[in-house]
């Protein structure tokens, strides 16, 4: 237990250094602000040209909040899984990590924690920009804080463990390592209805979306911030799910992700050691 906590802490510190020390603090701050704000502005202008400047439609807040929180998906999921690619291919350090007194499973989660920190900066900036410049200002007193905190925490944990699953796949594959993560994030962006209600998609895509826990995570966060009634009125394709049901699905899927990630990563690790893949450098 002590070793797990130490691995987590050291990896989170290392991850933060890698994420932030490539430049001066000012440039890092600019980078942290520009990327998420520009992503949000794309949606804002897409909305603006159609709505002629009317920001009062609750659909806008629904789109905006979903986009802001989706930043976590790319960052945490890929932050955990891409550690394998970075440490093995780029820095050539994975083999040293494996021979050091550290638990790699927790090391990966720790690296994901560092990404969570940088993503949190981006999410807060995006939400603050929405509140200040665009009027996406959830009422502080009507926000469902317990729902927000529980949904956010459980969802982030779930993303971390899903990242471990992806890391396992990357550990035993030689090619397309960068692309696999992007493909997963891209598919989730579409299927989970990060920036639109899933009800606008064809039925078969809606069912695919309903099979992914992140869809419920985003729905829970939107309900917590914007109000359950308002979100349900938009007929997003999830209006028949009560908030406790959404929480239950989220909890269940996170527990499943924990169990699967432990078993699957162990299997991948053993296979990688057998095949000599831990220090593989493909230059692919």
């Amino acid at each position: 237990m002590h070793e797990s906590a130490r691995s987590l802490k050291v990896a989170a510190w290392l991850g933060w250094q890698i994420e932030s020390n490539w430049t001066e603090p000012f440039l890092f701050l600019t980078y942290s602000i520009l990327k998420p704000v520009a992503s949000a502005l794309i949606l804002v202008f897409m909305y603006l040209v159609i709505s002629q400047g009317n920001f009062n439609n609750p659909l806008f807040a629904y789109i905006y909040v979903g986009n802001a929180f989706f930043i976590y998906v790319g960052a945490v999921l890929l932050g955990v899984s891409n550690t394998i690619v970075d440490d093995r291919e780029h820095y050539g350090m994975l083999k040293y990590i494996y021979v050091s007194p550290i638990q790699v499973y927790f090391y990966l989660l720790g690296r994901g924690m560092a990404k969570t920190m940088t993503a949190t900066i981006a999410v807060v900036i995006t939400l603050a920009f929405g509140a200040i410049a665009l009027g996406v200002r959830p009422d502080f007193f009507t926000i469902d804080w317990p729902l927000l905190i529980i949904t956010l925490t459980v969802g982030l944990a779930g993303l971390g463990f899903m990242g471990i699953l992806l890391a396992g796949i990357l550990l035993i594959t030689a090619r397309h390592n960068d692309i696999v993560g992007e493909a997963v994030a891209g598919a989730l962006y579409l299927l989970c209805g990060a920036v639109f209600p899933i009800s606008v998609m064809p039925d078969w895509l809606q069912w695919a979306g309903r099979a992914i826990p992140i869809t419920y995570w985003l729905e829970g966060l939107r309900r917590a911030l914007l109000g359950t009634e308002l979100v349900q009125k938009l007929h997003t394709g999830l209006e028949d799910f009560s908030t406790p049901t959404i929480l239950l699905i989220l909890l269940g899927s996170t527990l499943l992700a924990i169990l699967l990630s432990i078993g699957f990563y162990r299997w991948c690790e053993r296979r990688a050691k057998e095949k000599g893949l831990i220090d593989m450098q493909t230059m692919y």
Partner: peptide, 27 residues
């Protein structure tokens, strides 16, 4: 050849998401 598949498939995911935004907005 798989690069070509990824090169087409990945941007299409993003494109589809943006198309669905416009559809949701009834543009």
């Amino acid at each position: 050849k798989s690069w070509l598949i990824f090169g087409v498939f990945l941007p299409l995911l993003g494109v589809s998401a943006y198309v669905f935004i416009y559809k949701a907005l009834k543009s």
